[in-house]
Nucleic acid binder design. Structure first.
Lengths: 121, 121
DNA sequence: TCTACATATGAACAAGTGCTCATATGTTCA
DNA sequence: TGAACATATGAGCACTTGTTCATATGTAGA
């Protein structure tokens, strides 16, 4: 006698529509791709970084001016700029002692617009 | 004799371009709006939620089928669906004991596309 | 070279997050 | 009504994250 339940999977979760689950499973993108996508959106999920990006929509700015604009420490801004730089959302240009940051991605503005549309609804 | 440095603000940060900072400050949206925007993107910043949303692109699904698809516990999925529900990204329809979730926002697919475009570059 | 300054960086810590586990809620069917 | 089941929820915990503080790095001018 078998104790295998045809409607159960390895995780021992009950299944309502096994066929559908399989069909969707086939269509799911690679685990890694979805992970990267989440990592990308995570960068937008902090209000300090959102503010920095918004500021850079208006103008390229140096670290201390961004810190001033947002009333935050130079260190905090620098740390966050590194996050933005690592995800290739901003680039920088050195000019003597000061470093000017600018946006590096055309999609950002469109993504913001769509986000705005949602929260405004 | 005054110890006020014209180029310093309340935070005691040095300023490079005071005029620019003021100009950008005028144009910045409300603090609260930017906070909400960050909160909205934060929801996309988790791979479990990204997977759930991706699954719901394909079909409306009940909690246990999503749990099965993603090989995760029913509880974990239910907790995350609540997050998605709270930010009005999904809606649900009860059918007896089972609850079917579906996407509630036309912007999501477009936002995903733009995110993909960025990480693919 | 020495000083001043703009920025970067590492350690530390408080606050937040996502999962598990146990259990509650609500529905169907006998 | 009671058992079975799908889902929801609260507490607890390990892990992550954003800031501060102290300090390092790198550049310009004296």
């Amino acid at each position: 006698m078998e104790f295998v339940d045809e409607n159960r999977q390895s995780t021992d979760q009950p299944v309502m529509d096994k066929e559908l689950v399989e069909k969707v499973r086939q269509k799911m993108p690679d685990e890694e791709l979805l992970y990267d996508l989440a990592e990308f959106f995570k960068v937008f999920g902090d209000s300090t970084r959102i503010k920095i990006i918004w500021a850079l929509f208006e103008a390229d700015m140096c670290v201390c001016d961004i810190a001033n604009l947002l009333n935050m420490s130079q260190s905090a801004i620098s740390h966050q700029l590194r996050v933005l730089k690592n995800s290739r959302l901003v680039r920088y240009k050195k000019s003597g002692k000061t470093v000017y940051y600018s946006l590096n991605d055309d999609h950002i503005e469109r993504i913001f617009e769509l986000g705005m549309e949602h929260i405004m609804e």
